[in-house]
Design a protein around this nucleic acid. Structure first.
Lengths: 242, 242
DNA sequence: ACCTGAACACCGTTCAAGT
DNA sequence: ACCTGAACACCGTTCAAGT
């Protein structure tokens, strides 16, 4: 007998330790972070919540991640991977529009990502890849130098701004229908007074009351994107083939 | 002697109670909330912080405000008042551009307001007034009906999107220069690898390295706004007089 | 190397109790 | 009517100690 395992008895009495005895991974942590964010929104995410979801203590997450902000940065890049460039379309306008629409759709799926964009640098691999494909499309259109940057920024800014506006709109509607009686009356009174002071706005609000938010948001997005692309077409060397 | 003040002794020994014995006001609370937000950013605002700044307990704020979110909503509308429409310019393009620039400037002064826009409905009086003046300008340009809404949204979206991008950019630079040694080296290595995979992006990043963020951000903002206004000019009945 | 448990210094919000 | 004090149920983060 080559003697003694450190703790006495038979080997069989000691449980085999897990293959690499690590229960966690950055990947798994980001998985549940995204899941929690999608389900409960920005407010619902806490280190303790993610930890218990993984059957683990809050402190152990800090072995894989320096801070909660880091985790959010990882989560943002994770969902950024969902944005897909349309398969090689010949027209740069179509390609750019498809990219913008895909970006918008992703942000609508993960609305918490907007709050991240407002603060975080966003230098993850997926963000970089996305920027590259956008720039290539605009390069093909004839943009170069600083105008290339500005054109790219203009399109991205429209996407982000539009989704923010849509999210705020949806939140307002949800809050109005959500609360019990009393809200409608006070809101109606408030808006009636506002209408007197702001006739143009009042006219538009009355017209918008009956409209489907989904369709109208898409219409506005397309309208703004169309304006933008028209402006870009004027400024680039290679006009769109039409 | 008409006898007894409730607590004995001379009147002079009892301090005169403050005129209306209320130390707080919604207005004053919002004042310090905005001040704290401007100084320490979104993270720095807490009910206890605002309370101590006012020489008061945290709980007392809830007499004037239902929740912290309410306070943020009030703070947002407060800074929205800073946005000024340019004095009646005849050209709708100039008027709209001036409004957009004023809006952008305000958001850059109070960057925490961006984080509010992403979530909050924003139905305050100043927000409504702002919408009214914008709509009037576009109405004068010849827009009406749903296109009027879409045109307004397009301009606002560009402002919000552009400021978000600029804020993120500035944050990245601040973070890069802020931390001690080690950051630059690791960042350089990371970006070098990224450059191999993304040549177009790499070219732009190299060119942007030496540029003044302030000027370049303004240039990009003007570029996008120009594109947008060109597109709007095509779509409205009354073309810009030029 | 990887995770636990407990602690520290905070939060927003509520609510009896005082005046 | 307006504010205090104390409590409740949370936070992010750190860090000795275990294995």
């Amino acid at each position: 007998m080559p003697s003694s395992e450190s703790s006495g008895g038979s080997v069989w009495l000691r449980p085999e330790r897990p293959p690499r005895d690590r229960r966690l991974t950055r990947g798994r942590i980001v998985d549940v972070a995204v899941a929690v964010l999608d389900a409960e929104g920005h407010r619902g995410l806490s280190m303790r919540r993610v930890a218990t979801e993984l059957g683990v203590t809050a402190g152990s997450l800090y072995w894989y991640v320096d801070t909660k902000d880091d985790l959010l940065e990882l989560a943002l890049d994770r969902v950024l991977a969902e944005v897909r460039a349309g398969a090689g379309t010949s027209d740069w306008r179509d390609g750019l529009a498809a990219l913008a629409r895909s970006n918008r759709a992703m942000l609508l799926r993960h609305r918490w990502a907007l709050s991240e964009l407002t603060v975080r640098p966003n230098l993850g691999p997926n963000a970089l890849a996305l920027a590259e494909t956008g720039l290539r499309l605009l390069e093909r259109a004839g943009f170069a130098g600083p105008d290339l940057d500005a054109a790219m920024a203009a399109v991205n800014d429209h996407v982000v701004g539009a989704v923010i506006a849509e999210a705020a709109w949806r939140d307002t509607l949800a809050r109005m229908s959500g609360t019990g009686s009393g809200w409608d009356e006070r809101a109606a009174e408030y808006l009636r007074q506002a209408a007197e002071r702001h006739p143009t706005l009042a006219g538009r609000m009355a017209a918008t009351g009956e409209i489907d938010v989904e369709r109208e948001s898409e219409r506005r997005f397309a309208f703004g994107l169309g304006c933008l692309l028209d402006g870009l077409a004027v400024r680039c060397a290679t006009p769109s083939p039409s």
